[in-house]
């Protein structure tokens, strides 16, 4: 298998702000890679370098086997980009937008029109095809923008935060569309600040923070990196909390985390549901009144917190454009 994207030591500075700080990334052909990070982590900057919109100060990148700097013209015929801001013209109809993109990919008049109609049908925009985009909903605009990225059947597709700003229903709809899309074998690099999104869509995830990849792997591998399962339980009083912590100490495979304001206990464990049964038995023997108990697999939120020391959405920096 060859690699669709190879980036080595990419650096991009804006004055004193370092947007990319030695970014290395490899995306195998035919896979979906999620570039996961908070606002300002450098996700968009990375995508802009890969799509020839921006030149990196240092380092090199090849996309579809072509150097992003030296072979930019040729590369542009092979990539599709759908950005954070739906890059569609409000005054044009959906059809006119896609037709224009086709013409600018030099597909020719007939092929551009045909392709525009094809994509409008595929993205469920047939009814709105000949209406100006001005009247489209947020979800429809994103779908049209995504369709625009697919006009020339790109070998590598870049989606920069495809669901940012969408309501939950439109987001689910967009996920279905993207899942459908990559069944065809297109290589996709997807940036997102939603851990749930990366978990659901991506084969492999690269966690990015302060312009650098800080962890890579499948969602499961990343979760394992933080630790396996955790037992979480709530009790009524702080006295019971310490009793419970003492009782469960024998089951823990790491440090028990006790939150005495919420009377909440987090115990790292292994062994699945049998551990849960054993915990309940022991707590019962000590007459601890349990309000709530459950076994939880770590979420990508936990991964992020463990890797960066701060939670994903908690970022004071603005998005780098």
């Amino acid at each position: 298998m060859t690699d669709a994207i190879v980036a080595e030591g990419l650096v991009k500075r804006y004055g004193s702000v370092v947007a990319l700080d030695g970014l290395d990334l490899t995306v195998p052909e035919g896979t979906i890679t999620g570039l996961l990070g908070p606002n300002g982590a450098g996700k968009t900057t990375a995508v802009r370098v890969f799509t020839t919109l921006l030149e990196a100060d240092e380092g090199s990148a090849r996309v579809a086997g072509l150097d992003v700097r030296k072979q930019a013209d040729e590369l542009r015929t092979k990539i599709g980009l759908s950005g954070q801001y739906a890059a569609v013209d409000d005054n044009l109809t959906g059809f006119e937008n896609l037709d224009m993109v086709g013409r600018l990919y030099h597909l020719g008049r007939a092929r551009s029109r045909e392709r525009a109609r094809e994509l409008l049908a595929r993205f469920d925009l047939e009814d709105a095809a000949d209406r100006p985009v001005k009247g489209y909903s947020g979800g429809m605009r994103r779908r049209l923008d995504l369709a625009g990225a697919l006009v020339a059947k790109p070998t590598v597709l870049f989606l920069d935060e495809p669901t940012t700003g969408l309501d939950p229903r439109s987001r689910l709809g967009m996920w279905d569309v993207i899942e459908e899309l990559v069944k065809g074998g297109t290589t996709l690099l997807l940036t997102t600040q939603y851990l749930e999104e990366a978990d659901r869509l991506a084969d492999q995830i690269a966690v990015i923070d302060h312009g650098r990849v800080i962890a890579e792997g499948t969602a499961d591998q990343l979760k394992d990196q933080v630790g396996g399962e955790r037992l979480e339980l709530s009790v009524a009083t702080s006295a019971e909390l310490s009793t419970a912590a003492g009782t469960l100490a024998g089951l823990a495979v790491g440090q028990i985390d006790a939150d005495d304001r919420q009377n909440h206990l987090t115990v790292p464990v292994t062994g699945g549901s049998s551990v849960l049964m054993e915990a309940i038995r022991r707590l019962d023997a000590e007459s601890v009144k349990v309000l709530d108990i459950g076994l939880r697999r770590p979420t990508l939120d936990d991964v992020f917190l463990a890797l960066t020391g701060h939670v994903a959405d908690d970022s004071a920096q603005g998005e780098q454009k």
């Binding site: 802009r48 020839t52 919109l53 015929t77 599709g80 980009l81 801001y85 890059a87 993109v101 990919y105």
Partner: peptide, 8 residues
Amino acid sequence: DRFRSLPM
């Protein structure tokens, strides 16, 4: 950005 990513 869309224009710039196209081979135009």
